[in-house]
Computed example of a mutant assay.
Amino acid sequence: MRNQLKTLALLAALSGLLIAISYWVFGGTNGLIIGIVLAAVTNLFSWYQSDKIALAVYRAQPVSETQAPELYRIVQRLSRRANIPMPGIYIVPGETANAFATGRDPEHAAVAVTKGILNVLPEDELEGVIAHELTHIINRDTLTQAVAATVAGAISFLAQMVSYGLWFGGGSRDDNRGGNPLGILLTVLLAPLAATIIQLAISRTREFAADAGSARLTGNPRALARALQRLEATARQLPLNANPAFEPLLIINPISGQFLGKLFSSHPSTEARVAQLLKLEQELPTAVY
Rank of each mutant, 00 (worst) to 15 (best):
A154I: 01
S79R: 02
T135H: 10
L263V: 12
N139A: 15
R204I: 04
Q61Y: 04
N119H: 14
E133H: 02
E281R: 03
A215R: 09
I89H: 02
T42D: 10
L238Q: 12
P221Y: 07
G261C: 03
Q229I: 05
S172L: 08
T187Q: 07
G169R: 07
V274K: 05
L126W: 10
P93A: 14
A215N: 09
L284A: 04
I184E: 15
P254H: 04
I198Q: 11
P248N: 07
A210L: 10
L166G: 07
A233G: 13
R230V: 09
I91T: 08
Y289F: 15
T286H: 07
T187R: 04
P285V: 10
L231T: 02
P85L: 09
L38G: 02
G178Q: 03
I19W: 11
I252R: 06
A195R: 01
S79K: 02
I255A: 12
S64E: 06
L78E: 14
L200F: 08
V147N: 05
A131P: 05
E207Y: 10
L121C: 07
V120Q: 03
S214Y: 13
F208L: 08
F45E: 13
E125C: 09
L143D: 07
G153E: 12
V63I: 11
L38P: 00
E127K: 10
Q276G: 09
E107N: 14
T270L: 05
L280E: 04
A13F: 06
Q229D: 08
N176S: 15
I255R: 15
E70W: 00
L185C: 00
R81D: 09
T135F: 09
Q145C: 00
G103P: 03
A39E: 03
E232C: 00
R77L: 11
P254F: 01
S256I: 03
A13T: 08
Q199V: 02
E133V: 01
N139I: 02
A68K: 14
Y164I: 14
Q76F: 08
P87C: 13
R230A: 14
P244W: 15
L143E: 08
G16P: 08
L55N: 03
T7G: 06
L249A: 03
A233Q: 14
